[in-house]
Amino acid sequence: MHNPFGELIGLKIQHQDNNSSTLTLEVTPHLMNPHKVAHGAVLYALADTGMGAALYPSLSEGELCATIEIKMNYFAPVFDGNLVCHTQVINRGKKVANLESELKQGDKLVAKASGNYSIFTPSGKRQ
Protein backbone atom coordinates (compact mmCIF):
# COMPACT_ATOMS: atom_id res chain seq x y z
CA MET A 1 0.00 0.00 0.00
CA HIS A 2 1.27 3.45 -0.94
CA ASN A 3 2.06 5.51 2.19
CA PRO A 4 3.19 9.07 1.31
CA PHE A 5 3.68 10.13 4.95
CA GLY A 6 5.67 6.99 5.73
CA GLU A 7 7.86 7.64 2.70
CA LEU A 8 8.36 11.25 3.82
CA ILE A 9 9.86 10.21 7.15
CA GLY A 10 11.64 7.10 5.81
CA LEU A 11 9.53 4.22 7.14
CA LYS A 12 10.29 0.87 5.51
CA ILE A 13 8.27 -2.33 5.85
CA GLN A 14 10.72 -5.21 6.24
CA HIS A 15 8.16 -7.92 7.05
CA GLN A 16 4.37 -8.10 6.87
CA ASP A 17 2.08 -11.06 7.29
CA ASN A 18 -1.26 -11.95 8.80
CA ASN A 19 -0.91 -10.73 12.44
CA SER A 20 2.60 -9.24 12.51
CA SER A 21 4.93 -6.72 10.93
CA THR A 22 8.45 -5.37 11.22
CA LEU A 23 9.23 -1.81 10.17
CA THR A 24 12.48 0.14 10.23
CA LEU A 25 13.38 3.79 10.23
CA GLU A 26 16.72 5.58 10.06
CA VAL A 27 16.81 8.51 12.47
CA THR A 28 18.00 11.55 10.52
CA PRO A 29 18.46 15.20 11.57
CA HIS A 30 15.12 16.32 10.05
CA LEU A 31 13.29 13.94 12.44
CA MET A 32 14.64 15.65 15.59
CA ASN A 33 12.83 17.84 18.08
CA PRO A 34 14.45 21.10 19.32
CA HIS A 35 16.41 19.09 21.94
CA LYS A 36 18.14 17.03 19.20
CA VAL A 37 16.22 13.87 20.11
CA ALA A 38 13.99 11.95 17.68
CA HIS A 39 10.54 13.54 17.92
CA GLY A 40 8.01 11.42 19.80
CA ALA A 41 5.62 11.76 16.86
CA VAL A 42 8.13 9.90 14.68
CA LEU A 43 8.17 6.94 17.06
CA TYR A 44 4.38 7.12 17.30
CA ALA A 45 4.10 7.06 13.49
CA LEU A 46 6.38 4.02 13.37
CA ALA A 47 4.14 2.15 15.85
CA ASP A 48 0.89 3.30 14.20
CA THR A 49 2.07 2.27 10.74
CA GLY A 50 3.40 -1.03 12.09
CA MET A 51 0.00 -1.77 13.59
CA GLY A 52 -1.80 -1.05 10.33
CA ALA A 53 0.72 -3.19 8.45
CA ALA A 54 0.15 -6.13 10.82
CA LEU A 55 -3.65 -5.89 10.61
CA TYR A 56 -4.10 -5.08 6.93
CA PRO A 57 -3.40 -8.62 5.53
CA SER A 58 -6.24 -10.06 7.65
CA LEU A 59 -8.87 -7.73 6.18
CA SER A 60 -11.46 -9.06 3.77
CA GLU A 61 -11.93 -7.46 0.36
CA GLY A 62 -13.55 -4.04 0.80
CA GLU A 63 -12.68 -3.74 4.50
CA LEU A 64 -10.52 -0.97 5.91
CA CYS A 65 -8.98 -0.34 9.30
CA ALA A 66 -8.44 2.89 11.21
CA THR A 67 -6.79 3.79 14.49
CA ILE A 68 -9.21 4.20 17.41
CA GLU A 69 -6.52 4.94 19.99
CA ILE A 70 -2.90 4.22 20.81
CA LYS A 71 -1.17 4.40 24.19
CA MET A 72 2.53 5.07 23.80
CA ASN A 73 5.22 4.69 26.45
CA TYR A 74 8.64 6.22 25.79
CA PHE A 75 11.52 4.65 27.73
CA ALA A 76 14.72 6.11 26.28
CA PRO A 77 15.71 9.01 24.02
CA VAL A 78 16.82 8.26 20.47
CA PHE A 79 19.60 10.48 19.12
CA ASP A 80 20.50 8.70 15.88
CA GLY A 81 20.77 5.27 14.27
CA ASN A 82 18.13 2.80 13.22
CA LEU A 83 14.85 1.94 14.91
CA VAL A 84 13.04 -1.37 14.49
CA CYS A 85 9.34 -1.76 15.27
CA HIS A 86 7.95 -5.26 15.83
CA THR A 87 4.15 -5.42 15.93
CA GLN A 88 1.83 -8.27 16.85
CA VAL A 89 -1.95 -8.55 16.64
CA ILE A 90 -3.04 -9.48 20.17
CA ASN A 91 -6.76 -9.93 19.49
CA ARG A 92 -8.79 -9.49 16.31
CA GLY A 93 -12.54 -9.35 16.61
CA LYS A 94 -15.06 -8.63 13.85
CA LYS A 95 -15.05 -4.86 14.45
CA VAL A 96 -12.03 -4.10 16.68
CA ALA A 97 -8.45 -5.37 16.86
CA ASN A 98 -5.88 -4.85 19.62
CA LEU A 99 -2.19 -4.69 18.73
CA GLU A 100 1.15 -4.15 20.46
CA SER A 101 4.35 -2.65 19.09
CA GLU A 102 7.86 -2.69 20.54
CA LEU A 103 10.35 -0.14 19.23
CA LYS A 104 13.98 -1.06 19.67
CA GLN A 105 17.37 0.36 18.87
CA GLY A 106 19.60 -2.69 18.79
CA ASP A 107 18.65 -4.71 21.88
CA LYS A 108 17.42 -1.64 23.77
CA LEU A 109 13.66 -1.16 24.16
CA VAL A 110 13.05 2.57 23.56
CA ALA A 111 9.22 2.61 23.38
CA LYS A 112 6.18 0.39 23.51
CA ALA A 113 2.65 0.97 22.23
CA SER A 114 -0.75 -0.66 22.62
CA GLY A 115 -3.47 0.22 20.16
CA ASN A 116 -7.04 -0.49 19.13
CA TYR A 117 -8.17 -0.37 15.50
CA SER A 118 -11.62 -0.25 13.99
CA ILE A 119 -12.37 -2.74 11.21
CA PHE A 120 -15.15 -1.61 8.86
CA THR A 121 -16.51 -1.55 5.34
CA PRO A 122 -16.96 2.01 4.07
CA SER A 123 -20.48 2.91 2.98
CA GLY A 124 -19.31 5.19 0.15
CA LYS A 125 -16.12 6.35 -1.51
CA ARG A 126 -14.78 9.84 -1.01
CA GLN A 127 -14.05 11.84 -4.11
Rank of each mutant, 00 (worst) to 15 (best):
residue 59 L to M: 03
residue 89 V to A: 04
residue 19 N to C: 14
residue 54 A to V: 12
residue 115 G to P: 04
residue 68 I to G: 10
residue 63 E to C: 06
residue 105 Q to Y: 03
residue 83 L to R: 08
residue 102 E to L: 13
residue 123 S to D: 10
residue 75 F to E: 15
residue 42 V to C: 06
residue 113 A to G: 11
residue 18 N to E: 14
residue 13 I to N: 12
residue 74 Y to I: 02
residue 33 N to H: 01
residue 107 D to S: 07
residue 63 E to I: 10
residue 92 R to D: 14
residue 114 S to F: 08
residue 60 S to H: 15
residue 22 T to D: 04
residue 112 K to A: 02
residue 109 L to W: 01
residue 103 L to C: 06
residue 33 N to W: 00
residue 121 T to A: 13
residue 84 V to A: 08
residue 113 A to Q: 04
residue 112 K to V: 03
residue 66 A to N: 03
residue 82 N to Y: 11
residue 104 K to Y: 00
residue 5 F to C: 09
residue 64 L to P: 06
residue 64 L to H: 12
residue 126 R to H: 04
residue 110 V to C: 06
residue 119 I to E: 05
residue 18 N to F: 11
residue 35 H to L: 08
residue 83 L to W: 00
residue 82 N to R: 14
residue 104 K to W: 00
residue 116 N to E: 15
residue 99 L to H: 04
residue 19 N to A: 14
residue 116 N to V: 15
residue 30 H to T: 01
residue 63 E to M: 10
residue 94 K to F: 01
residue 26 E to R: 06
residue 24 T to A: 10
residue 76 A to V: 12
residue 15 H to P: 02
residue 46 L to N: 14
residue 56 Y to C: 01
residue 51 M to K: 07
residue 60 S to A: 15
residue 39 H to S: 11
residue 42 V to W: 00
residue 14 Q to F: 00
residue 18 N to T: 15
residue 48 D to Y: 02
residue 17 D to N: 06
residue 17 D to T: 07
residue 55 L to W: 06
residue 104 K to S: 01
residue 27 V to E: 08
residue 16 Q to G: 10
residue 127 Q to C: 07
residue 73 N to D: 11
residue 38 A to R: 07
residue 105 Q to I: 04
residue 55 L to G: 05
residue 45 A to Q: 05
residue 100 E to N: 07
